[in-house]
């Protein structure tokens, strides 16, 4: 997996509903790890999900560019933007649909970060090509952090 982080220059982090606390923490952490590898990071999410990031990182130490989720889908569908890597945060069925959509619209290396209480069911519903980072956690970000570390190092 390490090779994916050594030649690519852009990444999209597509956030799901911010209901589960681990999402914001892991998104900040992953954004920082990608930036450390000179990868430009765009983060897409609902207004609430983006505001959680911006309030947690007001000086932009870990995040650069954020965009509303609907606007991001529009830009991707209209081929205005494309990303080498895409990470989709998944803890419900709707997030799977968003992942399938960007997978169809872009030629990108797709990773699903699957977490929450229904990881088994969510994994079973994925029928498209992607890599999965899975941890059945809702509050504690460390299991996902450790898996991201292993993926990138």
């Amino acid at each position: 997996m390490k090779e994916y982080f050594d030649g690519n220059t852009s990444a999209l982090l597509l956030l799901g509903c911010p209901k589960l606390p681990v999402q914001t923490s892991v998104a900040l952490y992953l954004s920082k790890k990608l930036r450390d590898k000179d990868i430009d990071v765009m983060i897409a999410g609902t207004d609430a999900a983006i505001n959680l990031l911006k309030v947690a990182d007001p000086d932009g130490h870990y995040i650069d560019n954020c965009i509303n989720l609907d606007r991001c889908i529009e830009d991707v569908a209209e081929k205005r933007v494309s990303f080498d890597l895409t990470f989709v945060f998944v803890h419900n069925d709707a997030n799977i649909s968003y992942a399938a959509t960007v997978n169809k619209l872009m030629n990108t290396k797709l990773f699903l970060i699957i977490f929450g209480e229904n990881t088994k069911e969510l994994v079973q519903s994925v029928d498209f090509e992607c890599d999965k980072i899975i941890a059945a956690t809702t509050h504690n970000p460390v299991p996902l952090k450790n898996k991201i570390d292993r993926l990138m190092e």
């Binding site: 609907d70 889908i73 529009e74 991707v76 569908a77 709707a94 799977i96 649909s97 968003y98 399938a100 959509t101 169809k104 619209l105 029928d127 498209f128």
Partner: peptide
């Protein structure tokens, strides 16, 4: 339709 099909002002989300 495929995901991303534009209907009214939305781009459709879903599995193929």
């Amino acid at each position: 339709v495929d995901p991303g099909y534009k209907l009214f002002d939305i781009y459709m989300i879903g599995i193929s």
